[in-house]
């Protein structure tokens, strides 16, 4: 059934594989986020599916990212001098303007805490807080057929977050501790959603997202710095069960994430970029058509980093979703919540 759907879709839009291939090649050629995987996880929030026409979805998410694993390449070292905990609160609004087109806006507030534990510094911490960068996306439902749909995503990341925060001594903080990146970046991607996958309450999601970054100025224009580009591929399934009067949606997502190394001027910045594969179980509780809450965790199952970097040990997210209809159309039951 699923294969048949794919075949039918491919016959209907023969150019889609070509588009997909071109995008992969393009993304692969461009040159990752600053050292370690501890930046603001904006890319994680982009894979949300479009809203239905005249429906407004508001999502609030708390994301906690704990980094205490030190890697050289794919070797985890027995090292725990430096740890980081990045907490981000996201507010995201998605509105369906037409049957096919919806817009998606994302704001965030971030708090980074870095702790160094050594024989001489018993857990001294550096903390940085502030609004991060914003994202504005357009999502276009390319085709909907046989309980399946394909959509395209494109947009920009706007450097609303500060990237010149100084510490208590007036020293400019390192780039990976800054709330913002200072650069305007381009986002593009595509997604495939299949409802009634295997059984009526189950759905399958496949999402591809890329963030192509541009240079930003640092140190009062003395240096041009470019974060490496993100390339993400997500595969997930969710199911639906009724539990008393509440709808329960358990899900499992596999996230493949690759970033290319950062660049200073034309030179690669060492110890940045890498490849991660995460396994992410999630659960969504839908109380009414309008309100649901969700929770998820990300467990790194494969990490291959460029050089030596601090990397994610565990990550989790908690949030709520409000679905507001601005028309008389009924809401769809939310299924997979990418995070």
């Amino acid at each position: 059934m699923f294969i048949n759907t794919i075949n039918i879709l491919l016959r209907k839009i023969k150019w889609f594989p070509a588009f997909f291939m071109v995008w992969i090649v393009q993304t692969g050629n461009v040159h990752g986020q600053a050292c370690c995987s501890g930046g603001v996880p904006i890319s994680n929030m982009i894979g949300v599916r479009p809203a239905e026409i005249h429906h407004l979805t508001i999502r609030g998410t708390y994301d906690g990212n704990y980094l205490n694993s030190f890697f050289t390449g794919s070797d985890k070292l027995n090292e725990n001098i430096v740890s980081r905990y990045s907490q981000t609160v996201f507010i995201q609004g998605i509105y369906g303007i037409t049957e096919r087109l919806s817009i998606n806006a994302l704001m965030n507030w971030v708090h980074h805490k870095r702790t160094v534990t050594s024989a001489y510094s018993d857990g001294s911490s550096t903390k940085v807080s502030g609004f991060g960068d914003a994202i504005l996306l357009g999502q276009y439902k390319l085709i909907k057929f046989n309980e399946a749909s394909i959509y395209l995503t494109g947009g920009i990341k706007i450097p609303t977050g500060k990237s010149d925060v100084k510490d208590e001594n007036g020293i400019l903080m390192a780039a990976d501790l800054q709330p913002g990146t200072g650069s305007w970046d381009m986002i593009a991607g595509a997604g495939f959603v299949k409802s009634h996958f295997i059984r009526p309450g189950m759905s399958f999601t496949s999402t591809f997202i890329s963030k192509l970054n541009t240079y930003s100025e640092r140190y009062n224009g003395q240096q041009n710095y470019k974060y490496g580009n993100d390339f993400q591929f997500l595969l997930g399934i969710t199911d639906s069960f009724f539990m008393k009067s509440m709808l329960l949606n358990p899900g499992l997502l596999v996230r493949f994430w690759h970033t290319t190394p950062d660049k200073i001027e034309d030179s690669l910045f060492p110890n940045t970029g890498g490849t991660w594969i995460y396994l992410a179980p999630s659960v969504n509780f839908q109380f009414t058509d309008m309100i649901s809450i969700f929770g998820s965790t990300e467990i790194p199952v494969y990490q291959k980093l460029t050089g030596s970097q601090l990397s994610t040990t565990i990550r989790f997210a908690l949030g709520f979703q409000l679905n507001i209809s601005t028309s008389k159309n009924k809401l769809l039951i939310p299924e997979m919540k990418d995070f």
Binding site: F70, T72, D75, L77, N78, E79, I81, Y219, Q222, Q223, I264, E265, D266, S267, L268, F269, P270, N271, G307, S308
Partner: peptide, 23 residues
């Protein structure tokens, strides 16, 4: 006493290229 791969130079091509990481 620290877990490091001492056979690996941690700064990539820095020894030979013309880049300076900080102003």
């Amino acid at each position: 006493g620290y877990s490091r791969n001492y056979s690996r130079y941690p700064y990539g091509n820095y020894k030979t290229d013309a880049s300076v990481y900080f102003p």
